[in-house]
Design a protein around this nucleic acid. Structure first.
Lengths: 307, 307
DNA sequence: TCAAAAGTGTTATCCTTACACCCATGT
DNA sequence: ACATGGGTGTAAGGATAACACTTTTGA
């Protein structure tokens, strides 16, 4: 390590992106007063950070957590801009993603798309907002000199799916909007918060949430974590709605069925769910045994045939 | 956060898994005296951790780094076992993976398979070691009572590929060997270090290295990071050797060619490399433009057709 | 001439995609 | 009857895996 480094003491805190899904709506737990993600100092009395986070969340929500995963550790000097917090340099923030089954009555859960309306491509509303933002971004691209303008245009083209929408680029899209001054956090005192740019969050919590959403969207493609968000038994439509809520895109029903069926991820319970209109649906149950074996499914390298 | 948590001050340090490939050998940088991964205290004078790590590594190796990525943050109480370090509770360790082009003359680079001989499935030697370890693990499975024995057997079966070898399960394999007391770090004073269990590393550095290898093996399957490890121009065989070195498995040459060609990842330079025996090979160059567009290639959900 | 490596063809198979269609229930 | 959702069939196209084979060099 470089000479002249000073040994420094840091404050450390945990920040949790706690996710549930209710029907068509992906929910994230936020603090009511501030709108921030739940967070607190790291307690040395826990054996591991993960264990500490798990026990805290389980106390808070009174629901077991299905899946916990570390997201990212920030120790950046410029984390909170604008504030006169010289000592923010010495704060380390470790963020986690945690999934739980839905908690209808508890307060503090909000639709995560209220913070990222452009991430919901399931309906016209979200797509209109995306189009509006692409418009604004296009001005921002043009406002740069020469080569930089081209770089900005390329980033915009990829991130906002002018060819095809990639649901996982949540963070890249937020960073672009941030740089362009199109979200309140970076708009400065001049720009009034514009319609459709989403509810802001304190500090860099919206970036952390974006990281969490991106990670979750990536993960469901190779590991069936969505079962941690569903009740014990569920219909195919409920499963599809959950995945659509997370990924923010509409899925093709028949093909989605087959995709799941073919992996043998679920089995029939024999029960029938007859709520709402339409033909009653079979209730399924997740086959937990399959997950461990399928922990890593996709080798994508052309390995040599044995012998 | 739970009531009664004490505000505590932490020491924070960075640990780097710095990787290069030379011919058939994947290399990792370690400190010569201790065999530890390079690490040092986090310096508050850097704008971000990532920036600090990058500048430090570039000084140390005098080579530019192609790719840096955060691995994991440990703040576990029981990180170092055996030592009488009561205050290890208050240490946070942030680990990074970094890739660089090969550095032949510099000292301190070691074959990462010297620490994980069972991870090299390219030849008979590694496969023999794996078979030996599976044997030892089988004893460990049997030594447990009832249901636990069955759980152990299933974990072993999956991790050690008794059906099929999954190159990405590096950490799971190491954890199994650790729990079974088959690596020096966990063997206790009784068990003499056994042949074929790999060179130990101080603290939990071998676990960190395992995490880095696993991450890299996973990453090369959906993002062509291996180009960060190759020189500007290279032959197809050099490319294949690099990927084989990282993944620890032999690849099928014709199909590997087509896999790369089909993604349009490389282009001919017009030059020819005529070293060694055999027909001279065309020299290729990596097409950097392709990467950004292909940042996320694999959507695996059956989305609705547009309109 | 042979060993070693480069490089091409080809086929069977599986997976993905898109479209079409029928089934069962409540109003 | 018809709207709503449940559920199946299938055929085209693409990707993959395995095998066989030709080409070009140095020793």
């Amino acid at each position: 390590m470089p000479a002249g480094m000073s040994e420094a003491a840091f404050k450390a805190d945990l920040t949790a992106v706690l996710v549930a899904v209710q029907g068509l709506v992906p929910l994230v737990l936020t603090l009511e007063e501030t709108g921030a993600l739940p967070s607190g100092p790291l307690a040395p009395e826990h054996r591991s950070i993960q264990a500490g986070l798990r026990s805290w969340v389980e106390q808070t929500t009174r629901h077991p957590i299905g899946h916990v995963e570390q997201l990212y550790t920030f120790a950046d000097r410029d984390r909170s801009r604008g504030g006169a917090e010289a000592d923010s340099v010495r704060a380390i923030s470790i963020s986690y993603l945690a999934l739980t089954r839905s908690v209808p009555d508890e307060t503090g859960w909000v639709d995560w798309y209220s913070h990222f309306p452009w991430e919901d491509q399931r309906g016209e509303a979200g797509r209109r907002i995306t189009a509006m933002l692409v418009d604004r971004l296009s001005d921002w691209c043009d406002s740069a000199p020469g080569a930089e303008a081209e770089r900005r245009r390329r980033r915009t083209r990829i991130a906002f799916g002018l060819e095809s929408w990639e649901d996982e680029l949540v963070l890249q899209r937020y960073e672009l909007l941030f740089e362009a001054g199109l979200v309140v956090e970076s708009a400065g005192s001049g720009g009034p918060p514009r319609e459709g740019t989403g509810r802001p969050m304190p500090r860099d919590h919206r970036r952390i949430l974006a990281t969490g959403i991106a990670r979750l969207r990536a993960k469901i493609k190779y590991r069936p974590v969505f079962f941690e968000l569903l009740p014990e038994t569920f219909t195919f439509l409920e499963l599809q709605n959950t995945v659509e809520a997370l990924s923010g895109v509409r899925l093709h029903k028949p093909n989605f069925r087959r995709l799941i069926a073919q992996q043998r991820l679920i089995e029939e319970t024999g029960m029938i769910s007859a709520v709402g209109p339409g033909r009653p649906a079979k209730l399924f149950r997740f086959r937990r045994e399959i997950v461990e074996a399928r922990a890593i499914a996709g080798t994508k390298l052309p390995v040599m045939p044995p012998r």
